[in-house]
């Protein structure tokens, strides 16, 4: 009886120890694996204190980045300012270019001015009449001049073709009547042309070789020059 009880005791102890070993070892291994495999940097697995540290770190980083952002924004603003300045400069250059184009005769222009018509009278209209007139118009402050719709520029030649009845302006033949248009201060120009004794109209009228008529107009249209002037020989002098 006693022996049997002892045996039962031993068996029970064995079974219990067996179970306890299974439970303990399996749980311990589970725990080992968990601790080993858990990535400590994952936020769900972090302890509160770790999270606090991380949070403060991120806050510092955020502040740094925010400062950097501000700096960058300031720089961008500066760049924008510069770009605007450049735009203003380029606008200015554009305007200058436009003005130059107008002066050089690359565009059609209009404005108040006068129209002088020359036609043959007792004699023929000759090239020097036109040259004279153009010079006087220039003197009177004409900004743009054309003869029979041919623009007169600084490079324009006005020549007589010997015994022929036409005149060449800019190597284009033109024939009378010659309509000379000029844009400028119309009153001043007409006054200058009409000056007694020295004005063009007065002089030609007294000689009555050719017929001259002058009209002032609110709007005179002058076409652009149609010959391209190419710079071949002259060069800009480099100046400091």
């Amino acid at each position: 009886m006693k022996k049997f009880k002892f045996r039962a005791d031993i068996t029970a102890v064995t079974v219990v120890v067996f179970i306890v070993c299974i439970v303990l070892v399996s749980v311990m291994l589970m725990q080992f694996r968990t601790v080993e495999q858990t990535d400590i940097t994952e936020i769900e697995n972090m302890r509160e204190s770790e999270l606090r540290t991380a949070l403060s770190e991120w806050k510092t980083k955020y502040e740094e980045v925010a400062t950097q952002l501000e700096e960058t924004n300031n720089r961008i603003e500066e760049y924008n300012q510069t770009i605007e300045d450049n735009e203003a400069a380029s606008e200015l250059i554009d305007e200058e270019l436009k003005e130059s184009n107008i002066l050089v005769g690359k565009t059609d222009v209009y404005g108040e001015g006068i129209v002088v018509t020359l036609s043959d009278g007792n004699g023929q209209v000759e090239a020097y009449d036109l040259i004279d007139l153009v010079n006087e118009l220039r003197y009177a402050g004409a900004e743009a001049i054309s003869i029979n719709e041919v623009r007169v520029l600084s490079t324009t030649d006005i020549i007589d073709m010997g015994g022929y009845t036409y005149i060449m302006v800019n190597l284009q033949r033109i024939q009378g009547p010659y309509v000379v248009k000029a844009i400028g201060d119309k009153d001043y120009m007409s006054t200058i042309l009409n000056l007694k004794g020295s004005g063009f109209i007065d002089r030609t009228r007294t000689s009555s070789r050719i017929n001259v008529s002058l009209t002032t107009e609110k709007r005179v249209e002058i076409p652009k020059s149609n010959n391209d002037f190419e710079i071949e020989y002259m060069r800009e002098v480099e100046s400091e």
Binding site: V15, V17, I19, C21, I22, S26, V27, L29, R33, T34
Partner: peptide, 20 residues
């Protein structure tokens, strides 16, 4: 019993799913 229990427990522990 101890050795057997440890071996079986190790097998179970290795094959058990990971706990959070």
């Amino acid at each position: 019993a101890i050795i057997l229990g440890c071996v079986i427990g190790a097998l179970i522990g290795v094959n058990m799913p990971m706990i959070s």
